[in-house]
């Protein structure tokens, strides 16, 4: 005699959930009220599609057949009634939407119209002429690219990397907002000072072997490495 495996019983779990519904409050004469509904639908035909609608009948005194008729009229207009409130339980039959109680007033929030997407802020700065002595270029939002040389006595301060298609003779400070991955690239390195994320090297400390050719400066830990770029 073998034990019969019991089918696994799944516990039925009851949960609560609240929804916001539109409340329709019909007034007498009902025909007049239905005409108002028609006018609204004419203006915005799909307005009530998919939205749960509750009928609040506390302002009118309808018989059971009148309620049934009203529900049918609304359904013929593509308005599905979720529930009815404000009537005696006796008036509501099983074929009608259920009686609801305990509804709370709440404000219907309009969907805010989508704000036009803000123009994306530029994240890199392009300079097409050389940077002259005494000029100071500060761009904390990202990379800076210079199509020309950076003269002695000029400085470039960037939140990102610095790319110089020319000779760097001035100061270059990259990664100023705490970006240790920033790098400095140039076609010829004669810089006065290089700094990445606060770690700096002056011209004296730059190895002679790196000079007079394309080079890049980057951070390895807290040491700045300057290597030829080929």
């Amino acid at each position: 005699m073998g034990a019969r495996a019991e089918p696994v019983r799944q516990q039925m779990r009851l949960r609560g959930r609240s929804y916001v519904a539109f409340v329709f409050c019909p007034f007498v004469p009902i025909v007049g009220w239905l005409e108002e509904i028609d006018a609204t639908l004419a203006r915005s035909p799909g307005f009530f599609v998919g939205k749960p609608v509750v009928l609040d009948l506390s302002a009118v005194d309808l018989s059971q057949s009148a309620i049934a008729h009203l529900v049918t009229s609304l359904e013929s207009r593509n308005i599905r009634v979720l529930g009815i409130e404000g009537v005696d339980a006796a008036h509501v039959t099983m074929s009608m939407p259920p009686l609801l109680t305990g509804g709370r007033h709440c404000v219907i929030q309009q969907n805010k119209p989508e704000k036009p997407a803000a123009k994306p802020k530029p994240t890199s700065l392009l300079l097409e002429s050389p940077v002259r002595s005494g000029q100071s270029i500060i761009f904390a939002e990202g990379d800076v690219t210079v199509l020309g040389s950076v003269s002695s006595g000029a400085e470039i301060v960037a939140g990102g990397s610095i790319h110089i298609y020319g000779t760097l003779r001035g100061r270059a400070m990259a990664g100023v907002n705490g970006n240790p991955a920033a790098r400095i690239y140039c076609q010829k390195i004669e810089a006065e000072l290089l700094a990445i994320d606060g770690y700096y090297q002056t011209a004296e400390q730059i190895d002679a072997s790196v000079r007079n050719g394309p080079a890049q400066a980057w951070l390895e830990g807290d040491v700045m490495k300057i290597t030829p770029l080929n």
Binding site: R132, S133, G134, Q135, S151, S152, G153, A154
Partner: peptide
Amino acid sequence: RDSDRIIGM
């Protein structure tokens, strides 16, 4: 260098 500064100005 000073000429460069003046060119910038």
